[in-house]
Each structure stands twice: as C-alpha cells, then as structure tokens.
Measured scan of single mutants.
Amino acid sequence: QLNAMAHQIQEMFPQVPYHLVLQDLQLTRSVEITTDNILEGRIQVP
C-alpha cells in the first residue's frame, strides 16, 4: 500500500526521489501529510 501511495505522490512531484517519498510515508502513512511535507520544504530534495 505504501508503494502505491509513493507512486501517486511521485506523479505529482517527479523531482522528489522515490526513496525520500517512501521514507516520509513510512512515518506519516498519509499521502496528504507527505504532500504537505514536500510543499512546505520539509523533505530535502538533492
């Protein structure tokens, strides 16, 4: 299920590496919260 959620987020934010999306999802278990984390700059994109 997390993989499906990660792919959904990757479609919206292809610039964010998959492993970072998955790592955040493991903590949040939420597409909405992880999306917010990306938008708020809480996930550092190399």
Rank of each mutant, 00 (worst) to 15 (best):
A4V: 11
I9S: 01
G41T: 02
V16C: 11
V31W: 10
M12A: 08
H7K: 15
Q15V: 06
R29G: 13
L20V: 08
L27W: 11
L2V: 07
T34A: 01
Q1C: 13
I38A: 02
Q8K: 14
S30R: 04
Q23I: 10
P17V: 04
P46R: 09
V31T: 06
L25G: 00
L27V: 12
Q10H: 15
T28D: 02
R29N: 12
G41P: 01
T34N: 00
R29A: 08
R42F: 06
D36M: 15
A4F: 13
L39H: 06
L2I: 11
Q23L: 12
V21N: 00
I38Q: 00
I38S: 01
I38P: 00
R42Y: 06
E32L: 11
M12H: 07
H19G: 07
L25W: 02
T35K: 12
D36Y: 14
L22E: 05
I9E: 00
Q26T: 11
T34G: 01
D24H: 03
L20D: 05
V16D: 03
Q8N: 07
Q8S: 09
L39A: 07
D36N: 15
L39T: 07
Q23M: 12
I38M: 04
I9Q: 01
N37I: 02
A6W: 07
I9R: 01
G41L: 06
T28S: 07
L27D: 08
D36T: 15
E11W: 10
V45T: 11
E32I: 09
Q15Y: 15
Q15K: 10
Q10F: 14
L25P: 00
N3R: 15
Q23S: 09
Q15R: 10
G41R: 06
Q26L: 14
L25H: 01
Q26P: 02
A4G: 08
P17Y: 04
P17D: 07
Y18A: 06
T28A: 02
S30Q: 03
N37F: 03
L27Q: 11
Q26H: 10
N37Y: 01
R29Y: 12
V31G: 05
V45P: 09
Q15W: 15
Q8M: 13
Q26N: 08
N3S: 14
I33F: 07
T28W: 08
P14G: 05
D24M: 08
L39N: 07
I9F: 03
V21M: 04
P14R: 05
T35W: 07
F13E: 00
H7G: 08
F13L: 03
M12T: 07
H7T: 10
R42E: 02
L25F: 03
T34L: 00
L22F: 09
L39R: 14
A4W: 14
Q1E: 14
D36P: 01
E32G: 08
Q1K: 13
L39Q: 07
E32A: 13
Q1Y: 14
E40V: 09
Q10V: 14
D24T: 03
L25I: 07
V16K: 01
V31Y: 08
L22W: 10
P46E: 11
L27R: 11
V45K: 09
Q26E: 12
E11V: 13
Q1W: 15
F13G: 00
L22D: 02
I43C: 05
M5C: 08
E11Q: 14
P14I: 03
